[in-house]
Design a protein around this nucleic acid. Sequence first.
DNA 1: TCAACGAATTGATGGTCGTCGATGGAATCC
DNA 2: GGATTCCATCGACGACCATCAATTCGTTGA
Lengths: 122, 122
Amino acid sequence: MMKATLPERVERVERVERVKGVCCPPSITVPPARVDASVEVLKALADPTRLQMVGVLKRSSRPVCICDFTAAFELSQPTISHHMAKLRDAGLVDVTKVGIWAYYRLAGHLEPKTRALLDVLV
Amino acid sequence: MMKATLPERVERVERVERVKGVCCPPSITVPPARVDASVEVLKALADPTRLQMVGVLKRSSRPVCICDFTAAFELSQPTISHHMAKLRDAGLVDVTKVGIWAYYRLAGHLEPKTRALLDVLV
DNA sequence: TCAACGAATTGATGGTCGTCGATGGAATCC
DNA sequence: GGATTCCATCGACGACCATCAATTCGTTGA
């Protein structure tokens, strides 16, 4: 967050006192395990079916019955349910059961970063 | 992009004329295969090592020698090279060889969406 | 009570992914 | 030329993933 600007057009690579056989002294400071949380969300979204699901839910003003996804995608009902469970486990969607049917919507308690991520993606 | 706002706090699920046994007539309009491009980038980022790599490259004002990553992470050299190749294949990083060493930096021709994605993530 | 329906779970299978050791290739230095 | 160093690739292995058929669970309605 310290440097939002990118190294624009660095054509000439400035060598940093690199000596053969002394590779590599400068240890990179790796940000801790907040990365894992992001990776969990990324893995949940890194699938065409699930990304489309999230896109539909984001654009829908009301909860969507999961049976509509089963009808829309050319996948079996267990597969659709499995994908939605992944989104549920990642905390991206909430479910409300109404009788026989299960209605899904985007989670209301999304972190700002996750919200921003969805705004960029879908 | 039409509705950035979310269905805030929809507690009461409004049923949409759903009749038992007639599931499910309304076919969801699924956006086409621009999803695949996003999924490719998401897959490239959905790994702790690669996400940290991208974070380091984004914060660095100059290209980073890949040997520094080999030293920083507790992974073998082929694994580090393999991860960087994934980022390369996804078009996220560029490489410049200087003698023995290989210097990596964020790609300069990133799409605005991808750039925004990285701004949110790392 | 029992049949019908939607959704979730289970078990199995083929494919992909992350990881490593070994090898190959290119550049540098003696 | 030959040895050394760094990087990429290859082959292999275990783990995870996406998918489906079959089954189970909860609810509805006759």
